[in-house]
Structure formats: C-alpha cells, structure tokens
Design a protein around this nucleic acid. Structure first.
Lengths: 205, 205
DNA sequence: TGTACATCAGTGAACGCGCGTTCACTGATGTAC
DNA sequence: TGTACATCAGTGAACGCGCGTTCACTGATGTAC
C-alpha cells in the first residue's frame, strides 16, 4: 500500500516529532522503535525506509527537540517588553508545568546525561543547539557587553537545566519548589550583577 | 559452593559498588544485570539471593553513589582553609577530570534525567542526598545567614550540575570549557553577592 | 487523456540477541550432638 | 574436639519478552507510451 511522496514526507516528519517527544519523556535508550512507530500510527517494519538506523533518528529527533525548545521559548517571550524578557523566560523554564511535562520541554533537561553517551552526530547537534540557545538568552541581557552577556547566558542556561533536573529527580515536591525558587532568585541576581555596558563598557578579559 | 557469611556480605557490597559505578557510567536502563554481575566477578544467577529486584539495587546503588560523591568532595575540600573551600569545591566539580569520569563523579550529574523516571524509593533517596549535599555547600558560605546560604547553595548545586551536563553533552571541547568557565565565574559571583551576616544580618524573607 | 507497467511506502513475520527473572543444583559453611 | 547433617551463597541453564534490524510481500502512486 504505497502512499504519495508528500504523504511519505509527512510520515517521516511525524516519526521524528513522535521520537522527539518520546525520547524526552522516556529517555532515548528506553524508547523502542516498535512502540515509537505505533505511537506514530505505523508498523515498525517501515522504519528503515525512512532512517538508516535508530542512531540516525536520534540525531534528527534531538535536532528537532532542541530547535522546538528554543523556538517555543522565544515565541512566548517575544510578547513581553524587552526589559522583562529574561524574567519571563526564567519563569517559564522554572515553572512546575515545565517540570511536569518533559516531552514538550527543554531537550537538554529531558535527555540530560544520556546526551553525553550519544554518538558524535547527536553531540554535534547539541553543540549547535547550545550555541543558539545561549545566544537567545544573551539577547535578553542587552545591558551587558556581548562577551559578558554570553558568559552570563551560559551560567543561566546551566542553572536552569540543573534546577529542573533536581526538581524532577526528587520525590519531595516542597524540596523541588525550593530548588526552583532558589535558582530563580540567583539567576536574576546573575542577570543584574556587574558592570552594565552603558555605564562601564568593558571588553572580555 | 557456599561462601561464608562475611564473604557474602562483602559480595553484596561489591555488587552495590559496581552498580553505582556502572549506572553512573552507562546509565541505569542501559546497564544489564548479567554484565553488572560479571563486572563484580560473579554469575548473574546469584543476583536474587542478594536483591529483590533490579529496582531495589538501583535505590541502594544511588544511595551509595550520592553518599560517595558528597563524602569525597568534603574530604578533599576539608584540607583547604575555610575561606577557600567553596572555590576549591567548585574547581573540583567543574574540572575536566570530573567531566571525563562520570563513574566516580557526581551521581546527580551522571544519572540526570533518569532519576526523574526512577521509582519512588530511588527518588526518596535523592531527596535526602540533595538536602545533605546542599547543606555541605551551604557550610562553605559561612558569611551568610543560614537561610540565605541554603538558597545560594541550591543555586550553586544547580549551576554546577547543569554546567557539567552541558559540557558532557557537547562534542566541541572548546564549547565545553567555555561552559565550565562561565559557570565557575558566575557561581563565585553568587557566593559573594548580597549582604553578609556579619555586616547586615537578615532573616529569610 | 488512457492504458500498462515499474516503483516504492508501508505491512507483518521473522532473525539473533540481551534483558530481568526463575530454578534445580553444587558443595563449602554453619550447627547440633 | 569430631562427626553427621542442614543450610544456603553462588552456578549455570532456561523462561518469556522486547530490542534493533531484515525481508518478502502488497497495492497505490508515479511514469512511459
């Protein structure tokens, strides 16, 4: 039962989207191809018509997952006045809604340590995604010189990722909330600490 | 071939230690019991003489892994004068040696998102370990009131975890180093920002 | 435009393999006399 | 203290199952005339 080329392209996209969500929800290793294909409304035999191997799908699904994460955040934050964008971004990232729904949330937080064990192609995807992501966060810090903003953005990305990882790991919801609120407080402190470019322009040291 | 009770107790300990290292190195889901038992110098049949299920071992191995992490850090940092302990701790945690060897490093960083999918017993273990860990970091911040030190310690724990997760995930070593150094810089800024208890005692707000 | 045929997207059975778990067995350890 | 027997730590084969991957097949799509 052959389908049209447009339909086949749509099928392929659907597999990648389903994979991105399942990998983020259950982990890469724990997600089987048969279940994944079934979730996409297909039988598992057709998988190798679209992808060379599971690893190839992993790289593509991660690329999509990371892109979606950043795009969604940027879209939601764009509606906020520039001066409040960082705070809006931090509030969304550290929300309980984000912690409760890894499948649609940050790919780095959802995959975590598993990325460090992924094949080089997937890790190269992570390179580009992280640079892009840090660049977006840095754009929420217009008061700082670009190099300083980038360094702060990296630290902010790390703090947010770590806080959500801890919040998801622990059983005690009060401890999880304490972690999220402590991270929020200190991220905003990072964002406002140090010399502003308008007062004290400074190049990287 | 029965062995003595002392030997059996040592065998059990060896299984838990081996599990802690393999879970941290390869991930919990990706570590099979047969390979794990072989690594401990045993055949897999004996496993259920020591543990009720893999999940029970996971909880025990995580408890050990988390405890080891904190104990080793505290031990190494104890040799440093109190005023420099935070910096020493941060330098160890963000070292390339730590990034390159998950098996002996921080259990939270090594297991990451997998903990969020673990059973309640394992996540309860994470609760206690995180509280203990945050308490140790707070003890490196004696200049702050206890509640403020705890909040800063949580943010520091999150930043360190996130930075190592990113550093391990990316393929580009320069990007990894940039992440580690940006995290270091901003963690030390967190640690020195805000009112000190000696100058401006302040209760939690 | 209509027909005949080649292509190929998706199906479903099957492959070898490693998974977590069970169990009959072995033989040294621990115990009772 | 020495002997006879029960216990049980560890062995190794086996269980059903899901894994990633392969392949012969089906039948609608795409193409050539």
């Amino acid at each position: 039962m052959r389908t049209s080329r447009e339909e086949a392209a749509r099928t392929r996209t659907r597999i990648v989207e389903t994979a991105a969500a399942l990998f983020k929800r259950d982990g890469i290793h724990a997600t089987g191809l048969a279940g994944l294909m079934a979730e996409a409304g297909l039988t598992h035999g057709g998988f190798y018509g679209h992808f060379e191997s599971k690893e190839h799908l992993v790289a593509e699904a991660c690329a999509l997952g990371f892109r979606q994460t950043v795009d969604r955040l940027v879209e939601r934050v764009a509606a906020v006045p520039p001066a409040r964008r960082l705070q809006a971004f931090v509030d969304i990232y550290l929300s309980e809604a984000h912690c409760d729904d890894p499948a649609t949330g940050c790919g780095f937080a959802a995959l975590g340590a598993e990325l460090g064990r992924a094949d080089p192609a997937t890790r190269a995807v992570a390179d580009e995604a992280l640079r892009h992501y840090v660049g977006e966060i840095a754009s929420f810090l217009p008061d700082f010189a670009p190099a300083a903003a980038t360094r702060k953005a990296r630290a902010i990305a790390a703090t947010l990722l770590g806080a959500v990882t801890f919040a998801r790991a622990v059983a005690d919801q009060e401890l999880a909330r304490a972690m999220l609120s402590s991270a929020r407080e200190n991220v905003l402190a990072i964002a406002s600490a140090g010399p502003r470019v308008s007062r004290l322009p400074r190049t990287r040291h």
